[in-house]
Write a protein that binds this DNA or RNA. Sequence first.
DNA 1: CTGAAAGCGCTTACAG
DNA 2: CTGAAAGCGCTTACAG
Lengths: 362, 362
Amino acid sequence: MKRASIKDLARIANVSHSTVSRALSRNPLVNQATAERIRRLADEHGYRPSAAARSLVTSRTATVGVVVTNITDPFAAEVVSGIEEAALEHDYSVFLANSNAEPAREVKVVRSFEERRVDGVIVTSSRVGSVYAGLLAKAEVPIVLLNNQHPGEFLHSVMIANPEAATEAVQHLLALGHRRIAYVGDRLGRQSDTERFAGYRVALDYADVPFCPEYVVHGDGKPEGGGAAMRRLLALDEPPTAVFCYNDMTALGAMRAIRDAGLRIPEDVSVVGFDDLFVARYMDPPLTTVRQPMRRMGRMAFETLHSLVSDAGSGQNIKVPGELIVRQSTAPVRKEISCNFSTAPKSTAGGSNVSDSNISGS
Amino acid sequence: MKRASIKDLARIANVSHSTVSRALSRNPLVNQATAERIRRLADEHGYRPSAAARSLVTSRTATVGVVVTNITDPFAAEVVSGIEEAALEHDYSVFLANSNAEPAREVKVVRSFEERRVDGVIVTSSRVGSVYAGLLAKAEVPIVLLNNQHPGEFLHSVMIANPEAATEAVQHLLALGHRRIAYVGDRLGRQSDTERFAGYRVALDYADVPFCPEYVVHGDGKPEGGGAAMRRLLALDEPPTAVFCYNDMTALGAMRAIRDAGLRIPEDVSVVGFDDLFVARYMDPPLTTVRQPMRRMGRMAFETLHSLVSDAGSGQNIKVPGELIVRQSTAPVRKEISCNFSTAPKSTAGGSNVSDSNISGS
DNA sequence: CTGAAAGCGCTTACAG
DNA sequence: CTGAAAGCGCTTACAG
């Protein structure tokens, strides 16, 4: 049995389908009584207008395409839930797609969004530039970027204030007396990594703590990479007494590596994360971290997209401040260690590569 | 500038738009040479067929509506990533919606899925019955349920084998010598809770361990609820030496409560979870839990939906086995405790309500 | 206030 | 092999 159409209702109500259309869209032109009669009929028959048919004439679909690297990443999930929440309020539906950071998938996803004529696209934590730029250019679909990982400005974006937040996090560590502070980054070249590293350097410089390239290692934004990177730090002659991690997922792995090495958190090593995922407060010890208002950022991304589409509002680049949440994974540096500390660990020739490229990117 | 349509291409290629349509859909009728010429033209102009226009005539949209309680729940995120993966392979797009378990939202979501004429709906971990049943009945949209929380059978579903998995988990605890084993459940009345509780009882009965109603408490499937429930257990005269938790999120809260009480895991209390979320292995200690193949279950849900739609395949109820993953949150019961244990703790009058309704539901 | 008509961008019998 | 025609289910000027 096919769904009832506007024509079916018209026949039943003994009016033209134009009138039905007007009645349902609450066009004030149509007679009150008949309008209500039609609406009642529509209700009784469980009538649902066809979004496809409507959008064919209005050329708007009330849909957004949302691309995340992987919805399995808690950060992405939080952002998407914010987007979806705001979308539903505006009667928008969201298409969700995982790019897995695979170009082949990205192409497929962009293509599908184009065919479905989404009113706009939100891309989270991706290296936008390559693939998506094409979408924007050719199809003129508005795109809003959330924590874009590609260097360079974009028209519309919502970004966390990385450098400032990172500086604050490291200053917290400095205030606790730490001097041997490491940075466990994300993959090199990603914008957030570059910016958080820059914030780390600023804090160090400000406190006149010499920068030590050996204390900069890179993971992959996930526990596995964080753990491997942490193990490299612990193998140093003078391992750090505190680490600032690119994000909470990285911190998860770092904490595991620290414990596996027989060290305690925070007594032996203080750990700071970034994001404030829900797990942060359930880790042992609860993780000190920088909170990103992820859901709110998702909402903001949708709202700017929406105003772009409906009010033809001009774009904007929104910068959101992070907030340091101090929990129990950070503690004052132990006396004996801080006394031992005199000069920066000698840097190796090879070690500086890492930090150099980081600096140049910031 | 509007998107190129089939007519635009027809004009440029000097053929009818029918021919263009055939060429693009690789209809073998059309002449090889012209077909290729048309396809090349389409490429050059970045032509993208309008999914809306197409689905208006084919009455298929190649979209699925996916409803989760909240995408922020790692279980839901894993399932959705499986669905999306399978969907993309079949050139389907997925609409994602959070119900938040709020009826008002559910109605809105279902309505939007109807208007968008999704080819099918997948509902995860919801109490399907009330709202969604209507969708199925009136609109005849195929629905596949994943871990449905409403008692009773449905046409098409993918479910974890709850009782068997729960029994296995509790038997692991029994094998370690535990006798005072508690069950920290989800909200009462949800199907998975009922079934996991049933599996717990089976294991106890099998081992001739007396059932103690006091050892059955209920949370909310989240850390907060798990923590509160655990605190109630720890306040008992004879607290349990092991707890089987409804899911990993509940275990997260339980573990925090145990530590806050100054007890150690697993030395004082062994903990078992359910799901095997990615965090399970990063908890301290790493959590023993029952693995649900969440992504695979998501894939299965999509595949059954897809075969329902395209092959007109008959529906099915798929049961997936769980897998016990033993990590370090469980250990043999301590001697002195197991010796102290003689009879089951005396049960209180009020305490039995809880277990009774659980039993009746299974 | 209401209806007839055109059209959105496709697909698909129906003729040739 | 190709084109003209009808139609999917809507919205919206245009007449009346």
